[in-house]
């Protein structure tokens, strides 16, 4: 009996520690998502949609760039198949996230479907690179990061939809917070890796594809290029990068 109680307390403690470890990681995203989400809410509002449109869409879609596209689609003519295919193209990078998290999300129990449902760029980046304290529950850490990010985004979109017209201070450039965050995460991963070939391949192939195909359609070709390069380099990289 007593041991059962102690174990239960331990469990509570490690969940609390998971929250305390997760929260600071999400703060930059809080700033970015409140801002970007609000921008999205304002955009929907100026397109004539009530605040519950951005609220429900941010809750169910939860993929920033695609929601902006969806706002655009709703203003055009009815093309469900086109909406579906465009979403697949824009979100194809999620396939990479899933592949990278297959093993990490193993054993997360009932939280797993939600972790997958809300696997956005930012939650993936944090859950992939964060150093989780050994006494904090890993699954709950992933869960809190994911939940907090989801919450910031929905809150931003809803607030934008409701109060959009009242913002007055100059926010130009605030969206750079996302760029800054990915630069830091890229750097952290760089310092963790023993080889830098895959990091450089990611940068280089994406940059070339951007130049060749333009900003609207480079992602898919960049992904295919990265996949091909990493597959070709498998023998080399899995020898040198075993510990990475």
């Amino acid at each position: 009996m007593r041991r059962g109680k102690a174990m239960k307390q331990n469990k509570h403690e490690s969940i609390r520690k998971a929250f305390r470890a997760a929260f600071p990681y999400t703060l930059p995203i809080c700033a970015g998502f409140l801002f970007l989400g609000a921008t999205y809410g304002v955009l929907m509002r100026t397109n004539g949609f009530a605040f519950w449109y951005p609220m429900l869409m941010s809750l169910t879609i939860f993929a920033g760039s695609v929601e902006f596209v969806a706002a655009d689609l709703l203003m055009g003519t009815f093309h469900p198949l086109q909406a579906f295919l465009m979403t697949l193209m824009l979100n194809a990078r999620h396939l990479f996230y899933g592949i990278s998290m297959l093993d990490k999300y193993k054993g997360t129990g009932f939280k797993k479907p939600y972790l997958i449902f809300s696997l956005c760029d930012e939650s993936f980046s944090i859950n992939c690179t964060a150093k989780i304290p050994p006494d904090a529950d890993r699954g709950w850490f992933y869960f809190f990061v994911t939940l907090l990010n989801h919450f910031y985004w929905v809150a931003g979109a809803t607030l934008g939809g409701v109060f959009g017209s009242l913002v007055h201070f100059n926010t130009e450039g605030l969206d750079f917070v996302m760029t800054a965050m990915f630069v830091v995460i890229f750097l952290e991963q760089w310092q963790k890796d023993k080889q830098h070939i895959s990091a450089l391949a990611g940068l280089g192939i994406s940059a070339v594809c951007l130049l060749v195909f333009g900003s609207d359609s480079f992602i898919l070709s960049a992904m295919l290029g990265i996949l091909a390069a990493l597959t070709l380099l498998r023998r080399l990289l899995s020898r040198g990068g075993e510990a990475a």
Binding site: F186, Q189, D193, A199, I205, S206, L230
Partner: peptide
């Protein structure tokens, strides 16, 4: 090996 490459892609 994907994460490093994907973070590069995200920066771009």
């Amino acid at each position: 090996v994907l994460p490093a490459a994907v973070f590069g892609l995200l920066v771009v």
